[in-house]
Design a protein around this nucleic acid. Structure first.
Lengths: 107, 107
DNA sequence: TTTGTATATCACCAGATGGTTATGTATGCA
DNA sequence: TGCATACATAACCATCTGGTGATATACAAA
């Protein structure tokens, strides 16, 4: 299996249903697929597709447990997003540094 | 104009062309629309559409300067993304806390 | 075995997305 | 006034996305 791209990660977290799944995994740890669907208004295949997107982005890992499949959070790839966005943090924090100086050259 | 939603922000940054535009604005400050298209392989209307998405997500502001329109970075809404992702930072940083304890209940 | 449960995949569909060319609008300049 | 420049929008199109019901696969239990 080829490594997930940064683009796949950005795309994966662009969907609210998938962010919700990640949030659930963070709060509750290893969770069966169907259980992750609780609160998700959609069919089982729809859920399964979201899980596949998360898998292919490298954001979750699976392990079989009897006839269930347990999903676990795998947050590593989120570091790519964090790295990108951290460049901007200084802006909204109101600090003026080398980057901010270039901004808002309004007369 | 209605306030931009968090969802609009996540969607806006999901496209590499738009992230690239934001990066350019961060580095170079107020920039004319066409100039932002340098390095972007696509038509002028395509660029204009991306800029509209960024505008509607509240990530850029515009100001007219003669016959050009200058775009300025408006990073505030990115704080929503940062807030969400910061929940996960502790995970990939390897710290074990209340959240991490729930994870990886692998035997 | 047969049956039930848990999940993934298939085949398909409607709507969103990103691209295009053509055109409209605002501004500056001859 | 007329024309060029800078940008936005309109109209259209192909592809992607997320949804669906039907079906396949894996495992457990009867």
């Amino acid at each position: 299996m080829t490594a997930a791209t940064t683009q796949q990660v950005f795309r994966a977290i662009a969907d609210p249903a998938r962010r919700s799944i990640l949030d659930r995994l963070a709060r509750e740890g290893a969770t069966a697929a169907l259980e992750l669907g609780a609160g998700f208004h959609g069919s089982q295949p729809a859920l399964s597709k979201h899980l596949r997107v998360l898998r292919e982005a490298g954001l979750v890992r699976t392990r079989r447990d009897g006839r269930r499949v347990l999903y676990t959070l795998r947050p590593g790839p989120l570091a790519d997003v964090e790295r990108w966005i951290s460049l901007y943090r200084q802006f909204w924090e109101g600090r003026l540094d080398a980057l901010a100086r270039h901004l808002d050259e309004t007369p």
